[in-house]
């Protein structure tokens, strides 16, 4: 673990170099995850006649702009990498090295963030130009809370995908399973519907679920309609649970990999 921490800066540097080499593909991937804008179009038209439950057009614009930002900054694709590596046996050379391959994957995930900001910049600027009233300056407390919440959200998203990726040691269908997860996530995380606009009972439960912890939580902390303390606590709990699950199942997965071969 300590050795990994010492090596991580180098891993990050090389991952950044790799992202530069992949920049054309990266830009396209980033532009693909823009569903919040499609959602915004709908909610914007819906609230043209007046605010819905306190959400006016400007509120929706602000909400989905921040959601887009958070979605990108917590963008993870380790599931697909793991799937491919396990299926094709490309995982084997990585297992020969005395460092868990997931560290390198994580370095790549972080290295993509500058690109995401670069591509999102003009997009968010576009939204701000369309609705200038959405631009705001968060309080220091909200900004700090947001930063922590964002890191926790990324970790939740990371471990979730790791877990589904680890399933690939046993099943061919981990991608399909994740798709089902994704549908539920889209509905309960705040991705397509702001949580306050969900039926109250659903929203109440959703606040405690890992879906919200990986997206809606930081959005709501920044915009000020979720309490910072409890939100961060729920997120941290999920990070701990999912992290432990990942650690345990990874080793089980490696045993399975060693048993069936690649």
């Amino acid at each position: 673990m300590i050795a990994a921490a010492r090596a991580f800066p180098t891993l990050l540097r090389i991952a950044v170099a790799e992202m530069v080499a992949y920049r054309a593909e990266m830009v396209i991937w980033i532009l693909t995850a823009t569903l919040p804008l499609v959602m915004l179009a709908l909610w914007n038209a819906a609230s043209a006649g007046g605010p819905l439950d306190g959400f006016g057009q400007a509120d929706f614009a602000r909400y989905f702009a921040v959601t887009l930002l958070v979605r990108q900054l917590t963008g993870v694709w380790v599931l697909w990498e793991l799937n491919q590596q396990i299926r094709t046996g490309a995982l084997s050379p990585q297992l020969l090295r005395p460092m868990n391959p997931l560290w390198w994957q994580f370095a790549e995930t972080i290295a993509a963030i500058p690109w995401r900001l670069l591509v999102l910049g003009p997009v968010l600027a576009g939204v701000a130009l369309w609705r200038p009233e959405i631009v705001f300056v968060p309080t220091l407390a909200a900004a700090a809370g947001f930063a922590v919440s964002l890191v926790l959200a990324l970790l939740v998203a990371w471990f979730v995908q790791c877990l589904f990726g680890i399933l690939a040691f046993w099943f061919d269908q981990s991608l399909g399973l994740f798709q089902v997860w994704f549908f539920v996530w889209a509905l309960l995380s705040g991705y397509v519907v702001p949580l306050p606009l969900l039926p109250t009972s659903v929203a109440a439960v959703a606040t405690y679920l890992p879906f919200h912890a990986s997206l809606g939580a930081p959005v709501e902390v920044l915009l000020g309609f979720a309490p910072v303390g409890p939100t961060l606590a729920i997120q941290a709990a999920w990070v701990a649970v999912l992290g432990a699950a990942t650690y345990l199942t990874w080793n089980a997965g490696l045993r399975r990999y060693g048993a069936v071969g690649a």
Binding site: T10, L11, I14, P98, W104
Partner: peptide, 12 residues
């Protein structure tokens, strides 16, 4: 060269 550096870091 970059892979070499990566290995250097990974093997310490």
């Amino acid at each position: 060269r970059e892979t070499f550096e990566l290995n250097r870091a990974m093997y310490g």
